[in-house]
Design a protein around this nucleic acid. Structure first.
Length: 481
RNA sequence: GGCCCCGUGGUCAAGCGGCCUAAGACACCGCCCUUUCACGGCGGUAACCCGGGUUCGAGUCCCGGCGGGGUCACCA
């Protein structure tokens, strides 16, 4: 049988990382087995229509390399793929269940229910619908229906025994039926509840494997009751652990660390993000850590999905991101880095190509670039103690002495290339009998004001240009007294 | 609170009864390389939640406790 998985997000305008990972696993599983990956938009949330929200979903998934075989924009044999376009499909199914005795009309109002719920809570009990309307006679029901009394349709759950199923990752899971609540299938506005629509859609779309968050673990018995009542085949369940921010919190939008777009705009590479995300809750069983999408498809196996929640470690993601950046095509790096360079260097006429060469291996996340290179735009304030460096055998006095020695040498350089800068200065150092470090260290400090810079003295002098370099050197001499 | 799930170093994790005096990666700390930083190389610190069983033998199986998470809507 052909494997069919789906990703069914709500168009909220943002893609949660947990959602991206769920989509990824569903995608990988389908591809791994030569099956189909379906995209279904669950937009029954009537009140909140977000402009462009479905595009966010499309762009994220496609951008990451997850293409779907069926969906709103690509069509398919099981459409429509947008839930709001399927509105009319659900009520008949609910009525079928009523006829089969698996569901029933309920006329209790929301207010009555709230009251009873509050009362139960006051008694310290868990509220469960008491099947009040299940006892209504056929005549009573018909009378109310004829009178146009608002109603909902509820699932008639068993009250004894237990419901069990075998989850593909968690194994055998059993629940006492006495805990099952007669959930609403059709709301008073005749629209289906999320859970009901889900089951109908999954069945109609021929979904064979349901990959979803483990928050559905405890409502799955009710899903199964529905499948059984219809006489439909129950899909395989692959419940996924939660992606956490720390041991007790999920990734949340509040902290700005939950959305795919948060990371992309900070300058994380989607390949790195996907690669890292794949590894939170899953591993290939060997030591491999770097995967292309193709390699993930090849290696993916739901048997290796973990059962305990994983914490999303930004530090490790950042490391992985740096690895990806270092290995990316230089032209791509230059193109991506340019806007970040522009933030502090726009209009300076800086050699971006050379700068990019120096920066590529040092960029962990693109948004850290401006801080790393702002010294090129403007000489930072710095303390004279920076000239002290034990290993370089340097301090203020040495700095002053060696800088005084080098200033005329550098001033005499007209052919301002890195190579020439290097050769001329190194020759002068050799001639002076000084230690390389004792000259180069203070030289770099004098023109950068920083202990750490992306590149050494020659690279920076070149980048700065002759005028600016000399200006900074003179300022340094003055500062050193 | 009821029910369900989970519990190996700070984090991701391997381990599926003996090969574990417990891999690997990130982070951290040293050292080396280097005109700085980074990269790279080498080395180091650091874990089986607790208590009972079962077994010749338990991180690995069972039970209990504790801890964490999830779920208990006419939300999705």
């Amino acid at each position: 049988m052909e494997v069919r998985t789906r990703f069914a997000p709500s168009p909220t305008g943002f893609m949660h990382l947990g959602g991206v990972r769920t989509a990824l696993y569903a995608y990988l599983f389908a591809r791994k087995h030569g099956g189909k990956f379906i995209l279904r938009i669950e937009d029954t949330d009537q009140e909140r229509f977000v402009e462009g929200a479905t595009e966010v979903i499309y762009d994220t998934l496609r951008g990451c390399g997850m293409d779907w075989d069926e969906g709103p924009d690509v069509g398919g044999d099981y459409g429509p793929y947008v839930q709001s376009d399927r509105k009319h499909m659900y009520l008949p199914y609910a009525k079928e269940l009523v006829e089969k005795g698996a569901a029933y009309y309920c006329f209790c109002t929301k207010e009555e229910l709230d009251e009873r719920r509050a009362a139960a809570e006051a008694r310290g009990e868990v509220f469960k619908y008491d099947k009040h309307c299940l006892n209504l006679s056929k005549e009573e029901i018909q009378a109310k229906l004829d009178a146009g009394t608002p109603y909902v349709i509820r699932l008639n759950c068993p009250t004894e025994g237990e419901s069990a199923y075998d989850d593909e990752v968690f194994g055998h899971i059993a629940f006492p039926n006495s805990d099952l609540d007669d959930m609403v299938l059709i709301k008073a506005d005749s629209m289906p509840t999320y859970n009901f629509a889900n089951v109908i859609d999954d069945h109609l779309m021929g979904i064979t494997h349901v990959l979803r968050g483990m928050e559905y673990l405890s409502s799955t018995p009710k899903y199964n009751l529905l499948y059984k009542a219809f006489g439909w085949e129950i899909p395989k369940y692959v419940h996924l652990t939660t992606v956490m921010r720390d041991a007790q919190h999920k990734l949340s939008k509040r902290d700005g660390d939950a959305y795919y777009s948060d990371f992309i705009s900070k300058g994380y590479l989607k390949e790195a993000l996907i690669n890292y995300l794949a590894l939170v809750g899953w591993n290939p069983g060997d030591d491999r850590e770097f995967f292309t999408m193709e390699e993930l498809i090849e290696a993916f196996d739901i048997k290796r999905l973990n059962t305990s929640p994983g914490i999303f470690d930004v530090t490790k993601l950042t490391w992985m991101n740096a690895q990806y950046i270092a290995k990316m095509d230089f032209e791509d790096y230059l193109r991506m880095a340019t806007p970040w360079f522009d933030q502090v260097l726009a209009g300076k006429g800086m050699d971006y190509r050379r700068l990019a060469e120096l920066m590529q291996g040092r960029t962990e996340v693109f948004n850290r670039i401006p801080d790393m290179i702002s010294f090129l735009a403007e000489m930072p304030e710095y303390d004279l103690s920076l000239y002290f460096h034990k290993k370089m055998k340097c301090d203020e006095t040495v700095a002053k002495e060696n800088l005084t020695l080098m200033l005329p040498v550098i001033e005499g350089i007209q052919d301002w290339t890195e190579q020439n800068l290097h050769d001329t200065v190194m020759a002068a150092i050799a001639e002076s009998g000084k230690k390389n470090g004792a000259v180069l260290w203070p030289l770099r400090i004098a023109i950068s004001g920083l202990a750490n810079t992306p590149g050494g003295a020659f690279e920076i002098m070149y980048l700065l240009g002759r005028d600016e370099t000399l200006r900074r050197l003179h300022a340094a001499m003055e500062k050193l007294g």
